[in-house]
Design a protein around this nucleic acid. Structure first.
Ligand SMILES: [Zn+2]
Length: 627
DNA sequence: CGCTTTTGACCTGCGC
DNA sequence: GCGCAGGTCAAAAGCG
């Protein structure tokens, strides 16, 4: 009964979300086109040619589409073609002066020459992109491989049991086909994909045995969703199925070891109740965890009905202004644009976990090592009871691979939100060029304190904090600039004036160079990059992120061009009411922690802490939230 | 009215 | 087996 209602509610939510779905589907379609363009060579050129060729000239299309062939056939068949051109051009087959025909021929020839040139150019363009992509990919894989080795030997693997490893560790991690998910969205994720972990992968991979679970996952969802006039019985059944599915999705891997999911813990200064990461969350529980008077809130992603992603939110007991958000699970749906930044960020971190785990063969057992940095963290404070960590105890942390991203250097949630949701310069303009935040960059204006450690691809955050945490730190200026330039180009809203009007390909090239330039951050950056690319890829169509990353570079740009304007203009509300967060947090804290009202003191008094402030005060309004 | 949040009960895993 | 703690559920309350 209850269950039924619950599911019913969820179903309703589904309806609500359907709008989002439509929009995103539209986006997907668009992306398909786009990616198709840049994805495969012939197609790309062909499309280009098509768009450029006049409506009057079919041969142009031909030339554009199959330049290689045309090169051969052009000479011998020139006359034929010319004739056809003349035929179509002059139409009147009756009586045409021969000199006029010659004229036509002449012009046609000239035209063809142009087309040929055009083709040449396009081809070169394409080649370049392809090459860059391949280079990038190769490099990335190499780095990954190397890192695996290094980490294995150096014990710095960040990974903690990833089921996929248990299942097929011998299999190249890079390309794992995933099951089809609802929303016509095929979750062709790789380890670098958006998700924080790959639970679905595992279930899908287990295929045969478990196939019953995941497979229905995609279809039943839709089927149960579409037929509106279901009888109560049917519905309850389907609802149950849904629930089962959800559960199975949640725990994910019935057959594989039940290792906990990888988690990404984000520490950030935030005056709102939850981190404004762009996703829609619904609170489903709250608990006062041991060791921290601040209640821990449990949220579940509601962007898609069956999305297994959850997050826990709790204030740091040491510094109440620090919000510790722990993400867990993989989104099984296209993300709201506004959520991509955070998702990318976390996925990048998760990918580190992942890549580490690829080397670590053992399951949860490797947790200790994997949590190297985190343990550092833990060891420092967990002993004192006051300390809190998402996996609040060591034991749980052992079973839950967790990677910590420290964003505390970013002053406030407003900045952070800005940082997470857009890349416009919200901070001091001077720094924008060098350390502007973007989706890949965890560094803030205080990034000068952030440094990379060279030895292990493990990015450390070298501040005064007594712990080491993964920090996707700065990217090389080149990368930033290129990215920025792209942003500037594609997003008129972004204030900074365009500096280089580089072609997308140039941007990519720049990115490539950037990646190749500094091997120290290659891995992480590549991971982040890949995740983003992959994300966009998955979001847009059914392509696999990494596999198509390069091919999608162009399209990526275009997609981002579409995406970012929204991003920068819309501050998504993480939950439907981020506003209330602060106040409710206060309320809550007062209520729950009446014993020690002193806690409240930890809240930055200077922060505009009125109920509505945090969001409304910020430049961007979360009005549309892209949904 | 529909959706979200609250909140106590319940479930589960773990250590003793 | 028991108790504890983390995590989840879902009825009830709250909100717009
Ligand atoms: Zn989700």
């Amino acid at each position: 009964m209850r269950l039924l209602k619950y599911q019913y509610l969820r179903k309703k939510k589904k309806k609500k979300n359907s709008k989002v779905g439509e929009v995103e589907e539209a986006v997907s379609v668009r992306m398909e086109v786009v990616s198709g363009r840049s994805g495969d060579g012939g197609g790309a050129v062909k499309e280009e040619g098509r768009s450029e060729s006049g409506a009057d000239d079919h041969d142009h299309e031909h030339g554009g589409g199959k330049e290689e062939n045309i090169a051969i056939m052009k000479l011998p068949t020139l006359t034929t073609m010319e004739r056809s051109i003349v035929g179509t051009a002059t139409i009147a087959p009756s009586s045409i002066p021969s000199n006029q025909v010659d004229h036509e021929l002449e012009s046609a020839r000239a035209e063809m020459g142009e087309v040929r040139e055009e083709n040449q150019r396009l081809k070169m363009y394409l080649d370049r992109i392809t090459k860059e992509y391949q280079t990038l990919q190769v490099r990335f894989q190499n780095m990954k491989h190397q890192r695996d080795i290094v980490e294995e030997s150096e014990l710095v693997s960040l990974s903690l049991g990833r089921y996929q490893n248990y299942q097929k560790k011998d299999e190249p991690i890079i390309t794992k086909p995933i099951i089809t998910r609802p929303w016509k969205y095929e979750e062709n994720k790789q380890d670098l994909s958006l998700g924080l972990d790959c639970k679905f992968e595992s279930s899908s991979k287990s295929g045969g045995s478990t196939s019953n679970e995941p497979l229905p996952n995609s279809s039943p969802i839709n089927s149960s969703e579409e037929p509106k006039g279901e009888s109560g019985e049917t519905r309850s059944q389907s609802d149950k199925a849904l629930k089962t599915l959800r559960n199975s999705a949640d725990d994910g891997h019935e057959n594989s070891t039940p290792p906990k999911k990888a988690r990404v813990c984000v520490r950030a200064r935030c005056d709102t109740l939850t981190l404004n990461d762009g996703c829609q969350w619904r609170k489903y529980g709250q608990k006062v965890a041991k060791g921290n008077p601040c209640p821990r809130a449990y949220y579940r992603c509601t962007v898609a009905p069956l999305c297994p992603v959850r997050k826990q939110v709790q204030r740091c007991v040491h510094d109440m202004s620090i919000l510790i958000t722990t993400y867990e699970g993989t989104h099984n749906h296209p993300l709201p644009i506004s959520a991509t930044a955070m998702a990318s960020t976390t996925s990048a971190a998760a990918s580190m976990l992942l890549s580490g785990s690829s080397s670590s063969q053992s399951g949860p057992a490797s947790a200790t090592a994997d949590l190297h940095g985190l343990n550092y963290y833990l060891s420092d404070s967990s002993k004192s009871k006051q300390f809190y960590l998402p996996n609040s105890s060591l034991s749980s942390s052992l079973s839950c691979p967790t990677i910590t991203l420290d964003l505390t250097s970013i002053p406030s949630s407003q900045y952070l939100n800005r940082f997470l949701t857009s890349s416009s310069d919200y901070m001091n303009p001077p720094r924008f060029s060098s350390s502007n935040s973007n989706t890949l960059n965890f560094s803030s204006s205080e990034s000068n304190t952030i440094s990379w450690t060279n030895n292990t691809n493990f990015l450390s955050y070298g501040t005064t904090q007594p712990y080491k945490a993964i920090n996707l730190g700065r990217q090389p200026p080149l990368m930033e600039n290129s990215y920025q330039s792209y942003m500037q180009k594609s997003n008129p809203i972004i204030s900074t004036p365009p500096q280089h009007n580089s072609l997308p390909a140039d941007t990519i090239a720049a990115a490539t160079k950037a990646i190749t330039a500094d091997p120290n951050f290659q891995s992480a950056l590549a991971a982040a990059l890949t995740s983003i690319i992959g994300q966009a890829g998955t979001q847009g169509n059914q392509t696999t992120g990494v596999a198509n990353a390069g091919g999608e570079n162009l399209s990526q740009k275009m997609k981002w061009g579409d995406l970012f304007p929204t991003i920068s203009s819309a501050l998504p509300s993480s939950s439907s009411k981020v506003n209330g967060c602060a106040s409710s947090f206060l309320k809550k804290t007062q209520a729950t922690n009446a014993v020690q009202p002193g806690n409240l003191m930890f809240l930055p008094p200077s922060l505009p802490f009125s109920t509505t402030k945090s969001t409304s005060a910020s430049p961007r309004d979360n009005g549309d939230n892209t949904n």
